[in-house]
Amino acid sequence: MATGGRRGAAAAPLLVAVAALLLGAAGHLYPGEVCPGMDIRNNLTRLHELENCSVIEGHLQILLMFKTRPEDFRDLSFPKLIMITDYLLLFRVYGLESLKDLFPNLTVIRGSRLFFNYALVIFEMVHLKELGLYNLMNITRGSVRIEKNNELCYLATIDWSRILDSVEDNYIVLNKDDNEECGDICPGTAKGKTNCPATVINGQFVERCWTHSHCQKVCPTICKSHGCTAEGLCCHSECLGNCSQPDDPTKCVACRNFYLDGRCVETCPPPYYHFQDWRCVNFSFCQDLHHKCKNSRRQGCHQYVIHNNKCIPECPSGYTMNSSNLLCTPCLGPCPKVCHLLEGEKTIDSVTSAQELRGCTVINGSLIINIRGGNNLAAELEANLGLIEEISGYLKIRRSYALVSLSFFRKLRLIRGETLEIGNYSFYALDNQNLRQLWDWSKHNLTITQGKLFFHYNPKLCLSEIHKMEEVSGTKGRQERNDIALKTNGDQASCENELLKFSYIRTSFDKI
């Protein structure tokens, strides 16, 4: 039985969820670079991206490699990797027998973001014989899940209580170790020597080791999670996991709180800001991140802002960003909400898709409305799209047979046209069989910064309504002859009103 693990408890099935942008060198404390989270699957090609990484700022997932063999891993080693800020997950990587050479110096898994409450997941690794993470000293947050690894031993010899604050939620089941077939031998045991430290858990006094050649490092209890030197002297209180010299914040392997210019500090002093819960960055760093993602459509890219001495992905609820200094300031009234469309555009074809934009005031991208039916549609669209004030790209209304009016965009005031449909149009209306009105132009103002209007096959939309939009939106004169079809717009509506004058002759039985 794995020490510190839980057996036999019912657990939810383990679901495996399925960018080499360097964020800056980590400095003297770390020998390499800070790398983003990685999802490495199918083959070993991307694994080489770990070569210079000291910190993975995010998670590391290595999974679904069915053609790899043990010899493929023999020359692979990433000794610079010290810390993973989120979680480490391995799933069905064939041929991998140990992690001792792959990650010989991995010391800390912070667990800032977890995989279903777990910071370390080893699942269905069919050839893994031992973990071998002999320098792993601290899992700051989260638990361990090690399950269905039929060859995995050296679990009962690990004292997880020396690595985690609590072992109650560890789930370590259905491994070879369960069948008591392992016969784990710690260093020196074969020669009758006791080389590794022994600890007591559940009444068992057991030597602690990761492999037959690597003991588990056990520091004096007084050192807590700070770690200790090879001689057993406690590291500085700002260290986490390990250090090369005692009581020196510049000799830590990793930091308990924050890293700044080669030393570990309790908090980031001005003019620095907390970033990702582990390091200090200056304003320029946060500003660069903001600008890199301002026009990016890459998933996970955030326009970072500053709030409460932190550089964070977005302002919290009730705050909006001051564009001059990136500071989050309290909103006066309802907060603006910028919604970034991942692929640059979004099609609204149902109430469900409209709900995804609920509360958005600025759309960074283009909207395509293609709704053919739905219950209580006008009210639903207004509830979900009615706060949109600005669209950076274009607005396209296409084959939306259920629409009679666009009044559900009740606050839309600006279409920038930074991206144009077919390279020309910022407003595009095609084949809307029941569209009769755009907006009530006596109450609604709309500016279209650039781009043209396109109207074709809107049989109940009168040309007068379209011409009014040209005047109000500032697009009059931009359109070419064929942009607004004269014969297919309003051709099934009563669009022309003329005053009919009647004269009559009164007659009676005795007068003409």
Rank of each mutant, 00 (worst) to 15 (best):
L29E: 11
L29P: 04
L29Q: 02
L29G: 14
G32D: 14
E33V: 08
V34K: 15
C35N: 00
C35Y: 00
G37V: 15
L44S: 08
S54D: 01
G58L: 00
L60V: 07
I62V: 14
L63I: 03
L63M: 07
K67I: 12
K67L: 06
R69K: 03
E71A: 14
P79D: 04
L81R: 00
M83G: 03
I84Y: 00
T85E: 04
D86G: 04
D86P: 00
D86W: 02
L89S: 02
L89G: 01
R92W: 10
V93T: 06
Y94R: 10
G95M: 02
S98Y: 06
K100C: 06
P104C: 01
P104A: 02
T107L: 05
R110H: 04
G111P: 00
S112V: 12
N117G: 13
A119D: 00
L120S: 00
L120D: 00
L120W: 02
F123N: 07
E130Q: 09
L133P: 02
Y134H: 01
M137F: 05
M137L: 09
M137E: 11
T140S: 10
G142V: 01
S143P: 10
S143L: 09
V144T: 04
R145N: 12
I146A: 06
K148W: 03
N150V: 08
L152I: 11
C153A: 04
L155F: 08
T157C: 08
W160T: 01
S161W: 04
S161L: 09
I163S: 01
I163A: 02
D165H: 08
S166R: 07
N170K: 05
K176T: 15
E180T: 08
C182W: 04
I185E: 04
C186E: 03
G188C: 06
G192I: 01
K193C: 12
T194L: 14
T194N: 15
T199M: 04
T199N: 12
V200M: 12
G203A: 09
V206L: 12
C209M: 02
W210F: 08
W210I: 13
S213Q: 14
S213H: 11
C215S: 07
Q216H: 10
V218P: 07
C219N: 08
C219R: 04
P220L: 06
C223F: 08
C223H: 03
C223A: 06
K224D: 10
H226D: 09
C228P: 02
T229W: 05
G232D: 15
L233N: 14
C234Q: 02
E238P: 01
C239R: 00
P249A: 12
K251N: 05
C252K: 01
R256H: 06
C268G: 00
P269C: 01
Y272S: 11
F275W: 13
Q276S: 13
D277L: 06
D277V: 05
N282M: 07
N282S: 15
F283V: 11
S284H: 02
F285W: 06
C286A: 11
C286D: 01
Q287V: 08
L289W: 03
H290Q: 14
N295V: 03
R297S: 07
H307A: 03
G318R: 04
N325V: 07
T329F: 09
L332A: 15
G333S: 06
P334T: 12
C335Q: 04
P336W: 11
P336F: 04
